[in-house]
Every structure is written in C-alpha cells, then in structure tokens.
Nucleic acid binder design. Structure first.
Lengths: 339, 339
DNA sequence: CTGAAAGCGCTTACAG
DNA sequence: CTGAAAGCGCTTACAG
C-alpha cells in the first residue's frame, strides 16, 4: 500500500513551501497570485501521486467537518430511509457526508446522540424531532451549527423546518370520504403530543365538523403491535356504525390491516379506508387502498436547500425558513362511492 | 452557549499538567500511578464543567476516528436500511458511529465514496459489494482497516464476510414446490455476475435437476421496472406450461407482482409463487405469498461481531472469518398443494 | 508520581 | 509572488 502522502511531501519534492501547495490545492492560486507555472507543477504532482488531504487535520484546523448529523426515530422506517437516501445524494454533491443514528423513541439515547454529534463537530443537523427533546434542540439551535427539522415540529419554536401540510391533506382526505357518501368516519391515531399528529387530527376534525358529522376518534397508546391491534378491535367492535376509517400514519395503518385480517374486515366492502403515508403494499392490497403520499423528494430537496444555504452563510440567520409542502391523495378503490 | 472547554483549561484550573489530565480522562490513572486525590479532583472538574474531548484532535493524533463506513447500493432498500439500523445499534454500544452512503449501481460513484471514506479515516468498513468494485475492495482489504462484506461476495476473495446460505434455501424452496406437485417451475432472476444471485440460481437448478424436471430460467437485464415487466410478460406468455415461479429477489418480486396485475394472474390459482426476501406486502397479499426470509438480525450481529473483533485486534488477521447463515422459508398460501 | 514538549497534517496571518 | 511559523486540541515517549 502506498504510504499516505502529506502536503509536506509535495512541497519538498517541488522545493516550495507548504503554504503555496495548500493555496493551490484549495483553489486559491488566483487569489494569492501564485504563478501559472507553479500552480500547474503542483496540480500535476497532486494528480500523479493521488494526493488527498487528510480531512481530519483539515477539520481540526478549520473547525468544519463536512459531516451532517441525521437523527430520526428509526432509520429502517421507509419514510426516513428514503429521506436519508435523497439527503445523502444532495449532500454528497456538495462534499458533505451523513452520519446517522436512530433514537428508537428513547429520549436519553437521543440526548447522548446529540452530544456525540456535537462532539464530532458535525457542521449541521437534520432532525425528525423526538418527543422530549425540545429543550435540547432549542439549545442546539442557539449554537452556530445550523439545524433543519423535518416531519415533526414544535409550535412556537424558532427554527428552520420542512413539513408536510398535514392538516390540509387530511382535511381533503376526509372531505373526499364525505363527498363519496360516507357518514361515520373514524380516525385512528396514537396518544401523543407530536404536533404533526395533532395537525392530522385537526384536519379530520375540521372536515367532519364543517359537515356536521360526528367525530369518531380512537387514540391508542403506542406500545407495540399487539396492543394496537387489541385496541383497534375494541374500537371497531364498539363503533358499529363506522363506514370509513382513516389511519393517521404508516405504522398505524399496518396494524390496522392486521386488525382487518383478524376481524375479517374487507376494505371498501365493509369499511372505506384511507392511509396516511403511501407505501407499496397499499397499491397491491385487494382492494387497493387510498393513501396520502408525502412529497418525499420535495421534502428532501428543501431540507438540503435550507441547510446548504445556512452552511454557506447565504441566508440571514435571524430569518428562519419554515416550509410547508402539500401532500397528495392517491385515490384507489378502498374509498370509492358505494353504488 | 458555553465556550468549548479544552484539556488545557482543566489543567490550568487544577494547576497540573495536561499529561496528567489526559491520562486520567483516558482511564489510565492506575496504570500511570496517578494519585487517588488528583484523579478524583480531575474527574470531578470534568464532570462539573461537562468537558468532552475534541474527537477531531483525538482522531488526528491517534489515527482512529471511531467511525465505520457503511456502503450499499441504496440505503432506502428495506433489507439494507434494516441492517443499517441494527449495525448502528451495536456500533453505538461500542462508541462507533456510522457514516453511510449509497452507490446507486454506479461504479464510479462507489470508488469515489471509498476514497472519501478512506480520506476520512474510517476505522472499518461494512460493504455490500457493488459490481465492478472487486479490485478496489481487494486493495482496501490489504490496508490495515478491517472490511466486512455482507450480502454479496466474490468467489476466492480472501476477506471477512457474512452471507445468507442462498443456494441451500432456494434448493429447499424449489423442493417445497416440487413436493407440492408442481412440475414446471420457473425462476426469474437478473443478468448479473453477482455471486449471491448465481448461488440462488444454482440452488434452483440443483433441485430441479435432481428431480429430473426441466429448468425454466428467465434472466432479465435490469434497467427499470417497465423493462422488467415487459420481459416478464414475455416470459409468462412464452412458457405457457409454467405452474410455479420463484422470484430471485425483493425488487424482482415487486415487478413480478406488477406483471401479475397487468396480466391478471392470480398467485396460487394461476401460478404458485415464492419470493426471495420476505416483506410485509407478501403477508398481506391475497393470497399471502410464500417467501424466503433472510436472517437480518443474525446477519447484523455477525457483521458487527466480526468487525469489532478486528477493530480490537482480537482475532488473527490472516485468518478470515466467513460466515454463512441459514435462511427461513415462510410458507403461505401461494405455494400450497393443489387438491 | 508528574510535567515539558513534540507531533498528528493541515490552514492562514504575517512578513518580505 | 512565496515562505517560515503558529496553532487547531489532543496523546505519549521521555525525562526527572
């Protein structure tokens, strides 16, 4: 293996100073008035030897690590892993890499991770805010490092974030059911303070309310699948009049479908169904299930646009960017009008 | 925000040398015969001030970054993102973090990424080998940094790896179909040199061969979904005698299901089906589809066990660890015997 | 038992 | 136009 080449080696070989080499490598040849001849000589040798600056030393000196910390509940959730991929692509284009970790709904762990990220001098953060971490994040935001939140937010928190317009699209989804003649629409969500979940709920409530229908809400304490299913069976048994149901998130819908299996409920025939979050399964289910699709590409793009402009100091720091993106309702058979 | 504390600050406050502070912080108090009193004084102040060593400086000095590079085709593929989560968990327990990137089937990009990882001095690598990167990886392996491959491998390559026993489980799956009376079993795979795909194919061929059945293999050049579907339609139309089919991977099965939709083929009724890789959709499909499940937990565990033992120099470097784990056949309705 | 000092590989203010 | 040197914050061989 070729021994690691240092800037000093280049300088010595060419009998010039490391300063000059450093300037040229960092593209400051023009600015620093380095002669064409010297510049070329350096670049050629760099090429020939395949010199790569030691990024650790660079980071230590400049205080920039070119690393972005990505913090979510669980990287294996499709929504998060897709965002991860897209963000990584964009980041790579700009010389950044992503350090990720999953908090697994554990506040203590999340705090630790934040500490580790800080300790490793990540240049910026992309975070789906876990519950209970609000004050830590507030502290973090006061730091120099830019922070972009997504998916979750806290009302009144002054920071950059990128969200889906949860309340609006759930309003539309509910209205779609109402328009198709459904009169007893249930809404299954979890017991939580997470603002995005509350927004989804409020979209439902507004639609139901403005149509003078009764709201039928089931809030389940999220522990595990078994518990979710038990609670849902209970809900579906109690509320016999139900003719439609909206599941407020991916994992809730999954457990909803498990419940259907258990209770032998057939979407559309027995109950109209809409899922928040679209995933492949819904398309292939029989009948195919109507779903709200979050604009994953747009979300990732806006996260990175915001973050990069912060990292490059292109935007006014005191002016926070708060972006709310529209979602789409993918209408399939499960929510059609009964004829 | 509190100014970042350095080791020097601690030393000055306590009127001792940084050497002593460094020894204590790194748990070498005993070894270096630092007095109890001094040790306690230091530890208390570290606690009080919340001192965290600058990991960049530490890395530069020691040459260890405590970062593991994770390289896969696409982090958003469920198989990979699940492995990512599990690996991150284990790594975190040992003070390591994961830097990830997706190669997106782009050899050039993969090479770049490897270079970046090297440049960032990652301590170890976990890689699902992309095609065309064999020689790069060989080079990497000769380096000091430990490399653990998973999912993919190259025959004859001397390295640590963790694999699923592809050929055996596909043999079993094929045999299962044969035992259930199927006589014209097709196998849909992609045109590739990837060893794990060839192993799956060979499992099929052995089973079919040893039962004196004819092999019906469709190798599709992987470009995109549309192309896959087109080719599959072609295959299913040509091979009319087909009474069962095995899809050699997750994404092939997805396109297979799309093809079924297009052609109005119903699994089991029209064609017995088995998928390599189990995912939620298959369980909910009607009828539920039999699938080969890779032992994700075991894979992740073995990757990290191997990697950590290398990182700690606990195992003989010349002795490579090659682990092959058994998979499971989850039998569902799509492959049952026709009565 | 403890400390002064070199060095990891860079960048950059300063000097000429 | 170019260079000598300080310094980022650590660790550790060496000295006492």
């Amino acid at each position: 293996m070729s021994k690691k080449i240092k800037i000093k080696d280049i300088a010595e070989e060419l009998k010039i100073s490391v300063t000059t080499v450093s300037f040229v490598i960092n593209g400051k040849a023009k600015e620093k008035n380095i002669s064409q001849a010297v510049t070329k000589k350096i670049l050629d040798l760099v090429q020939e030897w395949g010199y790569q600056p030691n990024s650790l030393a660079k980071s230590l000196r400049t205080g920039k690590s070119k690393i972005i910390g990505f913090l979510v509940d669980d990287i294996s959730e499709p929504f998060f892993s897709r965002i991860a991929r897209l963000i990584d692509e964009k980041a790579s284009e700009h010389g950044y890499k992503i350090l990720f970790s999953s908090t697994r709904n554990n506040t203590e762990k999340a705090k630790e991770l934040l500490q580790i990220f800080r300790d490793r001098h990540v240049d910026g953060y992309v975070i789906a805010l876990p519950e209970g971490l609000e004050s830590e994040i507030e502290k973090l935001i006061k730091t120099e490092a830019p922070v972009v939140l997504f998916d979750r937010y806290v009302q009144g928190m002054e920071t950059d974030y990128v969200l889906t317009d949860n309340s609006k699209i759930v309003f539309e989804a509910t209205q779609h059911l109402i328009d198709n003649g459904y009169k007893n629409i249930g809404f299954v969500t979890i017991e939580t303070e997470q603002q995005q979940m509350l927004d989804r709920l409020s979209g439902y409530e507004q639609a139901v309310g403005s149509n003078k229908q009764t709201s039928l809400i089931k809030k389940i304490k999220y522990k595990n699948s078994d518990n979710m299913i038990k609670e849902m069976i209970d809900f579906f048994k109690t509320e016999e009049q139900l003719d439609a149901v909206i599941f407020a998130a991916n994992y809730i819908c999954m457990d909803g479908l498990r419940t259907f299996k258990e209770m032998n409920i057939k979407p559309f025939d027995d109950l109209a169904v809409i899922s928040f979050d679209d995933f492949e399964l819904l398309e292939f289910y029989s009948p195919p299930i109507t779903a709200i699709a979050q604009p994953i590409n747009d979300i990732a793009e806006n996260i990175m646009k915001t973050l990069l402009s912060r990292l490059n100091n292109e935007s006014d720091k005191s002016q926070k960017k708060q972006i709310v993106l529209p979602a789409t309702l993918n209408i399939r058979s499960s929510s059609l009008r009964k004829t």
